[in-house]
Every structure is written in C-alpha cells, then in structure tokens.
Design a protein around this nucleic acid. Structure first.
Length: 309
RNA sequence: GCCGAGGUAGCUCAGUCGGUAGAGCAGGGGACUGAAAAUCCCCGUGUCGGCAGUUCAAUUCUGUCCCUCGGCA
C-alpha cells in the first residue's frame, strides 16, 4: 500500500454508466483511500437504486462520503457541495489517506478542483422575488434588466436561459456587485489540489445498450417501489430530489400518467441525453487522462507512480 | 370485386391555385461560476408510392398500376 501525499486527490469522472464507482473500489484495493461523491443526485437518501448509488457491498470495502444523506425536499448546490466536500477531503488527507472524487456532475467537479467565487448566499426573500418576477415577466424581460446591471453576463447568456439569468440578477441584488465582477475578482483557473484526473470515455452508441440494461436492472430491483416510498415521504413533484432522471419518469407511472413502457423509454432517452451533456462537458475539462471502460489495467500503476513522486 | 380515404423526413402529419417542400417528435452538435440528472442554444435533400401522359416545367393536373385503412359485397 502506498500512502498519499497530503494535498493529493484522485478524480474519476465521465458519463453515467461507464463504471466509475466499481473502478474506484478497485483502486482502493491498491491504495489507502476513501471515496467522495461528486454527483448531484446520489446525495439523495430516498433514491439509492434510481440514482445508482454504490452498493452495500462496495460501501463495505472503504468509507464512502456524501452519498444518500439528503431528503428529497432539500436542495444542494455547487457551493454547498464544495464546502462539504472540502471538509471531508481535508479530513481524509489528514488521516494520511487519498480522497478519490467520483462522479459525473461536471460543475461540482470544476467548482471543487478550481474553486468558486466567494459569493455570499442569496437571502431567500431575494431569491423568491426574482423567481416570481421571472414567472411574471418571462426570462426575456429579466434579460433586458440584466443588460443594464451586468451587461457582460447578459451578453454571454441567451435571453431564454432563465436559470442563469435569475442567478445573475440574484447575485446583483444580494451583493450590489454584478456576477461578472465576482468572476473577474476571483478567477478560478488554477487547481487548488494536487490532482490526478481520470475519465472514462464511452461514445453514446456503445453506452446506449449498457444504459438500457441498467434501467431494466433497476426496474427489477424495485425502482418503482423506491419511488413509491419516496412519494409517501415527499409528495411534492417540484421538490429538488424528484428532478433526478428516472425519479420523475417513475413518478409519472405512480400517478397513472404513463405506462411502464413509456416511462422506460423516456428514462433511457433522458439518460442518453444527459450522458451526451456530460461528454460535452468533460471533453473540454483540461488534464483528464482518458480510458475506455474495461481497458483500465494501467490505471492503478499510474496512480502509484504519481503518489510516489 | 365495388365505393370512399390515404401513400410527403426515422415517426405523426402540413403544404405546394404547376416553378423540386416544412412543423412537432425522434436524432445529431454545442454552451455552462451555487437548481447542473438542471437550464438553454444551433442543425431538415427527402426517388413528395411506381410508371406513363399533358406542359418550357409535375410532388402538385390526367391516366394507370401497386400498397395501406375504412365501408359494402
């Protein structure tokens, strides 16, 4: 066993269904390590099966952090993820172990590795006010306002991108500084950890049958019952936990809106589209060493020589 | 067999009063600084069922054949 340097983290990223979780557990057999989740949906306690959280068997092999700890009515965001993950990573490193960051949420990965501008939390009343305005005036209306208070951000956002437009307006309203100011003041272009990043790359055509099979396996393992239990605890379609792919499709079956077949088709379609977005994101991410699933034999050697440096 | 209604993009269909066509969905590509499994953006050549006729020009009109779906036998 090799011990980790104090500031090192290993990252394992790539689209859904490429086998990141199993690979992480394999690496743990060679290196003293603990696994840290980097996936925005696997944090939800009510959806272990549907969001493909590591199995009990995997979790028994080494500590797994930030999985399945949040109820579906509670939101998580990149900022909160980063502060939770930072604390855990530091703790793991202090104990002389290597943190392995595993997951497919590109924004969380980048925010953790490269940092995030220290924008304070937005007070709930400001958030609510701007969301209401967006509903009333539409994203285009808010985009026009953003052009006045933050022309730089407005220029790079499409007038219908309500999520980013409202966020930029919220930042301005809460801090009296435009989002572009924060980003300029706190550029996030240098990694804050000594990082080795692996990516598992699989093109969509090869991934599709795997995703299809995984959905069938989840179905057989009781995904629908899992959703039914979650619905009893949180009967609110708009709750953050329900936005996961699969959760929403299964809910349509529970509410009698879709047939099982329809839901499975939509589930696969949406998963594929998501995998494509992940590929697009990670392709651009610098410094990732790419492997094909199943051709990862040299990976642990790379990890060990990196740790010995 | 007769009478209707159809055959146009992978699917569902619109349209062309004759000048070789366009929507939705599917599919493909892209963006991304606290909702990110989210939120958005861009991308449409297809023997217009086959063959023949009329015409400068036919997917459009005419004839004929083939196929599908109704109704009657």
């Amino acid at each position: 066993m090799v011990c980790a340097q104090s500031s090192a983290i290993l990252c394992l990223v790539g689209p859904t269904g490429t086998g990141k979780s199993s690979l992480a557990v394999q690496i743990v057999q060679k290196v003293e390590a603990e696994i840290v989740n980097c996936d925005s949906r696997q944090v939800y306690a009510d959806f272990p099966c549907i969001t493909a959280q590591p199995s009990d068997e995997h979790r028994a092999r080494c500590p797994h952090h930030l999985y399945g700890f949040l109820p579906p009515d509670q939101a998580i965001d990149a900022g909160r993820f980063v502060s939770l993950a930072q604390e855990i990573i530091l703790d793991v490193q202090t104990r002389g172990k290597l943190p392995i960051l595993v997951g497919g949420t590109g924004l969380y990965f980048r925010a953790l590795v490269y940092g995030l501008a220290p924008i304070p939390d937005i007070p709930p009343q400001i958030h609510e006010r701007i969301q209401t305005q967006c509903r009333e005036q539409g994203p285009e209306g808010l985009h026009r306002r953003l052009q006045e208070v933050d022309p730089e951000t407005a220029a790079r956002l499409h007038p219908r991108d309500r999520q980013r437009i409202t966020r930029a307006l919220e930042v301005h309203a809460a801090t009296h500084r435009p989002l572009s100011w924060w980003i300029r003041m706190y550029p996030c272009d240098q990694p804050r950890y000594n990082t080795l990043s692996f990516g598992l790359w699989s093109d969509l055509d090869s991934l599709t049958p795997i995703l299809k099979e995984r959905i069938e396996r989840m179905w057989a393992k009781g995904a629908l019952q899992e959703a039914a239990r979650a619905w009893q605890r949180c009967p609110d379609e708009s709750a953050p936990g329900w936005s996961g792919i699969g959760c929403w499709e299964l809910l349509q079956v529970l509410l009698g809106r879709w047939t099982a077949t329809q839901a499975q088709q939509e589930w696969l379609k949406n998963t594929r589209a998501y995998a494509k977005r992940q590929l697009t994101w990670f392709k651009k991410e610098p410094g990732i060493i790419w492997f094909k699933p199943g051709q990862t034999a040299s990976m642990t050697d790379t990890v060990q020589s990196w740790l010995e440096q």
